[in-house]
């Protein structure tokens, strides 16, 4: 028989301390993240051209999504620049993600391979991660002076001296490819480190066993590394996708003068310009609506990735377990009051 004191000790819960410790985070989160999030949704249904907008319903979504009449310049302008932004975002994201993941994977495998004894691994890792440390503004400035339209940019001085300068920044595909390149260059180090940690998380004995069995590097990669790296890959894909859809800094800053280049204008730039470009009469409604559309697209794509990459065995197992449980229950019922 337990004493009263013992009973009390048993029921002592430390949970309240846990809640206390996480409370500050949630308070900050609710004020500075959650409320603005809700606010964005409200703004999506609000009017434009004022700093204290009222609700107008679905008009913003209609303007952005449905093709307006050719003569309605305003709706046309907003509709087209949103879809132009969407197109650019997707093009630039694909063009940056695929080379980036390929390069990162290759380097990650090399750096973690037991057989490759590369000297100065740490040095290379640091150097490859370095571009990510530089602020986007500096990167944009650097690439503007390297590849700028001006005949005084590095590339035009070296390769086009005395001739018509190349206009890389204001031309369609060259500017997009440049942005893709910058994104790859900035982020491949980061992805590489992530994949490396994923590879290092794989049990080393598997690689040793493969080696003993006489598997070559290609076989090891496709049969062991790649399948076991799937979870990390999905994570990388997801974070890159969310980040990619919100790509803003480089496309926004890679221009001279006042006007952002149309060919690399992303949805995030569109959102920013709508509420920020016109100081006296900001278009919060269109910005909000575009943000919500982007949010929905991101959610759908995220869900899709999860669906495709779901662990089918685990689901099968769970199903069987459930069935077994049901069967057992039925039996119990059917058995009546057996002891």
């Amino acid at each position: 028989m337990a004493t009263a004191a013992q009973r009390r000790i048993k029921s002592v819960s430390y949970a309240k301390y846990g809640y206390m410790f996480i409370l500050p985070f949630f308070v900050v989160y609710f004020i500075f993240s959650f409320w603005p999030l809700i606010q964005t949704f409200i703004l999506a249904f609000s009017e434009n051209g004022t700093r204290t907008p009222g609700i107008i319903g679905l008009d913003n979504f209609k303007t952005i999504l449905a093709k307006p009449a050719e003569s309605d310049f305003k709706a046309m302008g907003i509709h087209e620049s949103f879809w132009n932004g969407m197109k650019n975002t997707l093009i630039i994201w694909f063009g940056n993600f695929i080379p980036q993941i390929a390069l990162s994977l290759l380097l990650a495998v090399w750096f973690t391979d037991l057989r490759v004894k590369m000297p100065g691994k740490g040095f290379f890792k640091v150097v490859m991660y370095m571009p990510n440390i530089i602020t986007a503004a500096s990167v944009a400035g650097l690439f503007l002076s390297l590849f700028g339209d001006s005949s005084y940019s590095v590339i035009n001085t070296l390769l086009r001296s005395g001739q018509e300068p190349w206009k890389i920044i204001t031309s369609c595909w060259p500017s997009r490819i440049l942005v893709m390149f910058i994104q790859v260059w900035m982020w491949f180090g980061n992805t590489m480190i992530m994949l490396m940690s994923g590879i290092q998380g794989i049990n080393e004995s598997l690689f040793e066993a493969a080696e003993i069995d006489g598997a070559n590097s290609t076989q090891t990669f496709w049969r062991i590394t790649f399948p076991l790296l799937k979870t990390i890959m999905v994570y990388t894909l997801l974070t890159s996708m969310i980040g990619g859809l919100q790509m803003f800094d480089i496309p926004y800053m890679l221009h001279t003068g006042n006007v952002v280049n149309d060919y690399i204008k992303t949805v995030a730039v569109f959102i920013y310009e709508m509420f920020h470009g016109n100081f006296a009469k900001p278009s919060f409604g269109y910005s909000g609506a575009a943000s919500v559309i982007l949010f929905v697209i991101t959610s759908i794509l995220g869900a899709l990735v999860f669906y495709v990459q779901r662990d089918k065995d685990a689901i099968e197992k769970k199903k069987k377990q459930k069935q077994a449980a049901k069967e057992w229950k039925r039996k119990q019922k059917g058995g009546g009051f057996s002891i």
Partner: peptide, 10 residues
Amino acid sequence: FKKEAAKIEG
């Protein structure tokens, strides 16, 4: 030009 200018609220 008109499409771009029309985006300006007001």
